[in-house]
Amino acid sequence: MKEFDPGEAPSSIVSITDRVKPLPLGAAVGSVHFLGDRAFFVGAEESVAIATADGEITRTETHFGAILCAVSDGKRLVTGGDDGKLIAIDAKGETSVIATDAKRRWIDNVALHGDGTVAWSAGKTAFVRNPKGEEKTFEVPSTVGGLAFAPKGLRLAIAHYNGVTLWFPNMAANPEFLEWAGSHLAVSFSPDNKFLVTAMHEAAMHGWRLADNRHMRMSGYPGRVRSMSWSAGGKGLATSGADTVIVWPFTSKDGPMGKEPAMLAPMPARVAVVACHPKNDIMAVGYADGTVLMVRLEDGAEILVRRNAGTAVSALGWNAKGTLLAFGTEDGDAGIVEM
């Protein structure tokens, strides 16, 4: 078990705010994903706004209602809505309906596998559909809080109340259950497939070392962890929920067990979103006061991308090459910046 004690340290800062291409989207942003070099801003409801680095915006209507979840593998974007629909959007912005819930339940979570398999959940049921269109379902004891595919093999982690179920949709074997009291929401495998972590309803993270299911408690957060991101190569896990970015080390075989997390980029506002660069040891950080920073993981050096203004940053994303960064806010302001 590890606890940290958030501190504070103000600093002067380099700014690239003048290089940001402003994108006045005018509607709350839920998340942002790059397909190629275009940023797909998933709205809180109804539509996806597609923007180029030049600031050109087009809009695609997707759901009739709130967009509750979104995931991208860089080739397509898949979103689930409160209209019971699971919708795919390709790099051209063309939409197609993958599935419609028979009872029109909310699609709460979605995950994509490298081979094109898609998983989603409605209530207590997790669905998996492979690229051939074969569908399988699995029921967990309580509402699914989060879904994630393991980086190797076809194995789906389903977070729910009191733990995580690891389901192998293509195998007859019984699913594995990792137990830990409490409500587990977002779930994520480390890129090396050795650890599984969840963000809990309480202001804490929980983790398991998959080799022996040893527990890792990561607590001390003043608020719920709503955003987490693995740094390049999976060396660290950057998390929101405190007034600094909390980065748990995952370099050793014990993961963060018995180690202190790094506390970077302290601000007088809560960290709302984190997105690590795909290749380098830097991350983008969005705060509840609207600030966006780029932060070097090694020493915490900061570059200002957006000054604090308006509402919380709600979305951050890098393109695969790591040359473009996009951000969006709860009040529909957004921007894109070329590195």
Binding site: K103, R105, G123, K124, S142, T143, Y161, A181, G182, S183, M200, H201, E202, A204
Partner: peptide, 20 residues
């Protein structure tokens, strides 16, 4: 539609239940 899932909070207090 809701499922009326009552969860205990992880704070050791048995009556701190919430609707997850």
């Amino acid at each position: 539609g809701a499922d009326e899932e009552v969860f205990e909070m992880n704070n050791g207090c048995v009556c701190c239940t919430v609707r997850g």
